[in-house]
Design a protein around this nucleic acid. Sequence first.
DNA 1: GATTTATGTTTACACGCGTAAACGATTGGC
DNA 2: GCCAATCGTTTACGCGTGTAAACATAAATC
Lengths: 122, 122
Amino acid sequence: MISEAEAVVMEVLWRSAPRSAEEILAEVGQAQQWQEGTVKSLLNRLLKKKAVKAERDGRRYLYSPLLAREKYVHQTSKSLLDRLFEGRVAPLVAHFSEQRKLSKKDIAELRQLLEELDDEQP
Amino acid sequence: MISEAEAVVMEVLWRSAPRSAEEILAEVGQAQQWQEGTVKSLLNRLLKKKAVKAERDGRRYLYSPLLAREKYVHQTSKSLLDRLFEGRVAPLVAHFSEQRKLSKKDIAELRQLLEELDDEQP
DNA sequence: GATTTATGTTTACACGCGTAAACGATTGGC
DNA sequence: GCCAATCGTTTACGCGTGTAAACATAAATC
């Protein structure tokens, strides 16, 4: 599985790829306070894990994701649901509801979602 | 923060406490294939992190949670939401919905939840 | 009282991660 | 052709984790 720092790099590539190491650093350097070497290392680990691929572009490489964000998000979330909420979504929502941590926007979107589910397969 | 293996021990204590190391092992040994020493180590790390407390009971200790499950669940889930879903619940539910990973039960419970929210503060 | 038994405490060790420095190779400029 | 800049690759190092063996200690038994 892919680590948290690695995921930061992936997020950049998921937003737009292919990208060079330099570009990735540029996009993430401020927020993360990373040096160049750090990004290089992370990219190499991601290569080893087959989460990204690299194609030569002159003297440098351009990196693209092989692992789809959808898949990563799903694995990660499912693992959390399994560990904390018996593998189901509703208990998680209930938890946030009890903690008063549902925004208006959340509630509106959830309503919308459920309506759409109604219309789906009758 | 508390690690995944440590959380397994916590779950036992959250279900019922106080418990001895032996009892914890008994409850978790099958599933985890852990030796006694492993549980002892995890308990000591949890003590150091102030996630559990120990009270003497004759020759042994009985352990109880200091960290509330609610709190742990919240920290862990919020961190995931922040990293993957802009910090909000609805996008997570949408994700599982798109993946057709909402059970009937989930959907029913979500509906219920939203109805209850209606009734709350008018 | 000496030995075994039951507990807890200390130490260990390999592995992944976050973070980077050092090294190497290729290329562009003079 | 040599030097400097630009990339990528290798190596490093401390820290947390998963997993446990080794050690210490106190109580129970013979």
